[in-house]
Design a protein around this nucleic acid. Structure first.
Lengths: 145, 145
DNA sequence: GAAATAAAAGAGTTTTTTATCTTTTATTAA
DNA sequence: TTAATAAAAGATAAAAAACTCTTTTATTTC
């Protein structure tokens, strides 16, 4: 098991790919995105439809259509993409799956995982989608393989 | 999504429960374990069969039979239970699901998640199964709800 | 050695996740 | 206003994870 669901992995990679590809305007089609992040095209289409409905990515139909990110979307933290797809379980859930795990009813790993979860949340909340464009443009970060 | 699979959550909780219940000798049956950690009995049976084959828990059939942990098993770190069930993906995998993500071919989140993964691995490697018995006996740690 | 006990093993089912294929709708441009 | 383009939507399908039920095997006790 990874930290994110496969759906969420594809979603994050796609959003970063779109941000990078449309940095200087224009749109990018689902085929190019799927190839660019090595994901199943139609499955990714579903994911992006969902993110589009939620306003996390923008899209346009027809010739010259495709996906892109407006200014606001570019400034969103990755945590919002994660929450939109996987929910906030990663940030708030119990490591051992206990529904009522809390400070007053802690599981054996509660204290230690609280720290970990907070770290993950912090890092994702501080990771603006647009900030990865530089390194992607330089080719020193990969979104496939 | 949690950090562990449901199977792994049950596995960890069961192992800690067995350790606690058999701390002063004896065995504990599958029914009592399933009730004690609030898990589906037959599903848990499968998990414990697997852990038993791998030597992470001990078992005995027949009257007075049940599950227990020998001295060695009690001193094992929780990381071994996790690895036995979920594999080492949590410790070594890429957050974005890239097969070849590494120092020389990093994904955008590689550096930050490397730290997180190491922290999780460290905490599980330093968490001996038997060390939770105290707090479980005191009732200040929960394995159900 | 027969009866009772309890885990192991086998054989499913259900649910969720991941993935595919087809049809529809919106947009553009000739 | 027709043809081409590209996302949206709908309908399935395949695979994996989670869960259930039944039969078998090993062990103990009488």
């Amino acid at each position: 098991m990874g930290v994110f669901s496969k759906t969420c992995e594809y979603g994050i990679r796609a959003v970063l790919f779109i941000a990078h590809k449309t940095a200087s305007g224009g749109r990018v089609g689902i085929k190019e995105i799927a190839t660019g992040i090595d994901s199943p095209e139609h499955f990714l289409a579903k994911i992006l439809q969902d993110l589009s409905r939620k306003g996390l990515v923008q899209s346009a139909k027809g010739p010259n259509g495709g996906f892109y990110l407006d200014g606001k979307a570019l400034r969103r933290p990755l945590s919002e993409v994660v929450e939109a797809i996987d929910g906030d379980g990663l940030f708030t859930g119990c490591a051992l799956g206990l529904k009522q795990c809390s400070e007053i009813n802690p599981c054996p790993l509660h204290n230690q995982f609280k720290l970990i979860r907070t770290e993950i949340q912090d890092l994702l909340q501080n990771a603006e989608i647009g900030t990865f464009n530089n390194e992607l443009a330089l080719g020193i970060r990969s979104l496939k393989r």
